[in-house]
Computed example of a mutant assay.
Amino acid sequence: MFIGHGSPRWALSPGEAAARLVEYRPLFDNVKALLVISPHWITRGMRLTVSSKPETIHDFGGFEQALYQLQYPVAGDPELARHIQSVLQDNGLDVALDEKRGLDHGVWVPLLHMLPEHSIPVIQLSLDAASTPESLIALGEKLKCLRNEGVAIIASGSLTHNLYHMGEERAAPLDYVERFQNWAREQVVERNIVTLSQPHIESDDFATAHPSAEHYLPLLIAMGASHATDQLSVLESPILYQALSMESYGWN
């Protein structure tokens, strides 16, 4: 999946975007673990959480106190984390294990809605600061084999993420936000992976939609981890705060 995780406050205001994720719950009945990538954990080189009880990280500020009380008490899976490390290393990618890191809001906020029972173990993989679009697509392709082992690959981010343009939660979306969301959807549906890897060239709205690219980049991992024969689901959701696309995609 690629999940638009929106603002941390989405945890308190589920709305239609969360309802769309709920539709996906049955697809996780036979999933044994989740591997989630979030733009809120960027490291030098890749790292994997290996804690058996990852903490819920409240990596934000300025919100109402109720948000900081929320927990997502899910288990980790150290044995699986070591296996994923081996899979990546066998494919020429170095990845270190991190025993202390928990799960940031790019992971637990959408899972709070989609899998509220927190019954499926979660491992988080960091984004390498030195990644390129090409290396992220290749990473997804190397992770693809884990799907056959019952591991769901979830890339969390946002199709649009210009915090300078945020307004009221339910205000009308800005024109460029709708245009870029529609452009991205068209490329995903048509599997134009090369086009998606160079949005700064292919879309006039990319620079405005993403002053920095880290929330867009997880989409490339999801595309790499998907098969051309997968059934694609477009989880259309409202644009919130005028500038945050909540659209998500699933491949199964």
Rank of each mutant, 00 (worst) to 15 (best):
A243W: 06
A33P: 05
E236R: 05
D98F: 13
Q198D: 09
G167V: 09
W41Y: 10
S158T: 08
L34C: 08
F2H: 03
L93E: 05
I137Q: 01
L220F: 11
F60M: 06
V188C: 08
R185D: 15
P39Y: 05
D205C: 11
D98K: 12
S7R: 11
A171R: 05
Q181G: 14
A33F: 02
D94Q: 12
E117C: 08
D230E: 09
L217R: 07
V122E: 02
S86I: 07
G6V: 08
P14F: 01
R185S: 12
G4K: 08
H215T: 14
Y164D: 14
K144M: 11
S226L: 02
V74F: 06
P211N: 04
K32F: 04
Y249A: 14
P116R: 09
L127Q: 07
A96W: 05
G106D: 03
V151E: 11
I42A: 04
R9W: 09
F60I: 13
H215S: 13
E190H: 14
E169A: 13
S7G: 08
E214D: 14
S52D: 14
F28I: 10
L127P: 04
E23M: 10
A243F: 01
L111I: 01
R191A: 07
I221A: 01
S51L: 07
E16V: 10
N252R: 11
P110M: 13
Q65Y: 12
M1R: 09
S38F: 04
M166P: 03
I137D: 00
Q231L: 12
A81M: 08
L146D: 02
L67T: 14
A155W: 00
E169V: 13
Q71K: 15
A138T: 09
S248Q: 03
V194N: 14
E55L: 15
H5E: 04
A228E: 15
N91E: 13
V22Q: 03
F206N: 11
D205E: 11
P238A: 05
H5K: 04
Y176T: 06
F2T: 03
I123S: 10
V194D: 15
V31M: 02
A172F: 11
I137A: 01
G106C: 01
Q187W: 11
A129W: 00
Q69E: 15
I193N: 07
A209M: 06
G102W: 05
L103M: 10
L232H: 07
L219C: 05
W10E: 01
A171P: 10
Y241D: 11
E169M: 15
S38D: 10
L235K: 01
T43G: 08
W183G: 15
H58K: 13
I239V: 15
E214K: 04
Q69S: 13
D175T: 13
L232S: 07
A172S: 15
Q198V: 11
I37W: 00
G140F: 00
L112T: 09
D230L: 04
I154T: 05
V107Y: 00
L80S: 04
T132D: 09
L143P: 03
A130P: 00
P133E: 08
V50W: 03
L240M: 10
S237N: 12
L80M: 07
R20I: 00
E23V: 03
P173H: 03
N162M: 06
L159D: 07
S203I: 02
L88A: 03
E236I: 02
D230T: 08
H165R: 15
G45R: 06
